[in-house]
Nucleic acid binder design. Structure first.
Length: 232
DNA sequence: ACCCAGGGTCATA
DNA sequence: TATGACCATGGG
């Protein structure tokens, strides 16, 4: 299962650091984030909202919606709580599913309120407990919950997406029928790294998926060749 | 015109 | 447990 480590190295060498949340800050080399600013309270809410908005949608669409929300002063829980659902939905039209997603953002904000908007307390909480709570919020599934944990709170969890299954099935270490948790456990067992590495790995998989993995037959020209052998 | 994008929920068998 | 319908915009 060193394939998981070597695939990471190849992806990083080929695609370069992706600079997903939190914002890249080369000046900061002091923490385990090694050049990436750890998430903070101001960013947390925006990251969580972004994680919801990006469900099954290209990030480009999310970027526009986040800019709109920022312009309208909506990247704060208090504002989201006040605004009518329909108006919030209007601000996030570009992300598709806007009625559902507006509701999801409201639901998440309500959970955050129940948590007293206390970001520091969240960072001290048992991640397993947090995950349970986030998963119980309607509209937050496994990937969104893990994205909030990893990118918003710096918890070392691997975020699994549709690309992950495809890519590692091609590498021959998945059958293609594993469930979310099984894939996640595989990475937790075989990929030893910091939260920053988990952050980067997921981002690289997305970058790679958008690029190489659409090709048929698979991967002859891709950076994982010849690791990547199956054509699916 | 068609397909997909950094998913999730709900109803049905 | 496992499919299928549905949500809905924007770019290729």
């Amino acid at each position: 299962m060193n394939l998981i480590r070597s695939a990471y190295k190849r992806l990083l060498a080929f695609h370069g650091p992706q600079g997903w949340w939190p914002i890249i800050n080369p000046a900061n080399f002091t923490s385990e984030y090694q050049g990436v600013t750890p998430p903070n309270e101001a960013e947390f809410f925006e990251i969580a909202v972004g994680a919801i908005l990006t469900q099954n949608i290209a990030w480009k669409n999310v970027d526009a919606a986040l800019a709109m929300l920022k312009k309208k002063g909506m990247l704060h829980p208090a504002s989201v709580r006040r605004i009518p659902l329909a108006r919030l939905a209007g601000y996030i039209r570009s992300t598709g599913y806007y009625n559902q997603k507006a509701k999801k953002i409201k639901n998440f904000t309500e959970w955050y309120r129940r948590r007293k908007f206390d970001y520091d307390a969240l960072r001290r909480e048992d991640p397993a407990v947090l995950r349970e709570e986030l998963r119980s919020v309607n509209g937050i599934g496994p990937e969104t919950a893990d994205s909030i944990l990893l990118y918003g709170l710096g918890v070392k969890v691997f975020v699994v997406d549709a690309y992950t299954g495809r890519i590692f099935t091609r590498l021959g270490i998945l059958s293609g029928r594993e469930k979310y948790h099984e894939i996640q456990n595989l990475f937790h067992r075989h990929f030893k790294g910091t939260a920053r590495d988990y952050n980067e790995y997921h981002a690289l998989i997305v970058a790679h998926g958008k690029d190489c993995c659409k090709k048929r037959p698979a991967c002859v020209e891709c950076c994982l060749f010849p690791l990547c052998v199956k054509n699916i």
